[in-house]
Computed example of a mutant assay.
Amino acid sequence: MKRNAPHSDAWNAQAPEREPWQEPDHFSGETPERAGGGSARLVPLVICAILLAVLLVEGVFIWGKSAQMQRNNAVYVPSAEQNVYPADESFSFGPLQRAMKVSGQGEDMGRITGAAQDEKIVRVALRMGAVNDAVWDCSGAFYLQCGGTYYPNLGGYRLKQEHPEWAMRALDGYELCESGMEEGWVYFLVPESVSEGTFWMHWLEKDEDYNNESVQAAGVPVSFAQEVAGND
């Protein structure tokens, strides 16, 4: 009696497994082990790309923060005929021809409490002569122009909160319309990078509805050095 031949599936199940055939790579000339080294060489390039992306994002953030700071501090300045005068010399300003004298050497006072990390205080020395009469239908203003940005002067109220010794001799724009002789400092909050600018005085005459009727502007170039010890 013939024995039945083993079932083909059972026979195949008992046969040892063979490695799948791989055609040789005639183009790379590398074994599979050597070909995998290309991925390893890509890792440093990927890391460098990530670092460059991080630096780019950080640079954009810093630029955006600086631009935002300028927008926060800057103000609209009415257009006017601008006359520039030399520093440390007297000149007449406004309808009453009030005598003015601005020091060309301002002072860098450093940071003030509550200001951003990249902001500081600078100040400009100003002397205003006395006139015969005050003008009530006007509004005065001080600005510091740095590049294309104008910064308004800091009011005495904020200075009094943080530095009352500064507020004692701080001048505000409204004093341009008064008649008495004044001598003191005009303070500005500016970016830390500021080392020079143009100090502007604006005289704005008002109509009966208190709208600007005419504007006069006088500017003096100033630069800033570190605070001199003992100045108030």
Rank of each mutant, 00 (worst) to 15 (best):
F91H: 02
A229H: 10
E33P: 02
N73R: 15
A99L: 12
R169D: 09
W200V: 10
G147H: 03
Q117N: 09
A170L: 07
V60E: 09
Y143F: 15
G104Q: 04
E17I: 12
A167L: 05
V215T: 05
M100W: 06
E205M: 11
S179W: 11
Y187Q: 05
A5N: 08
F91R: 01
A116C: 00
P191S: 06
L51G: 05
D172E: 15
W200L: 15
G184K: 04
C177I: 04
S39I: 07
V84M: 10
K2S: 13
S195C: 03
E119R: 14
S66P: 00
S8I: 15
V75C: 07
R34K: 12
F61N: 05
C48Q: 07
F27G: 01
A130S: 12
A225Y: 10
W136A: 08
G173N: 00
V220K: 03
A229C: 03
V131N: 00
E208V: 12
Y85H: 15
E165P: 00
M181G: 12
C146Y: 14
E30Y: 09
R3V: 08
N231L: 15
H202F: 09
I47D: 00
W11I: 13
R169K: 12
I47V: 15
R123T: 05
S28E: 00
E81Y: 13
G155P: 00
W166D: 01
V135F: 10
N212A: 07
L126W: 06
A170Y: 02
E196I: 01
I62D: 05
G94E: 00
S28L: 03
G180A: 13
G36E: 09
T198K: 10
W63A: 13
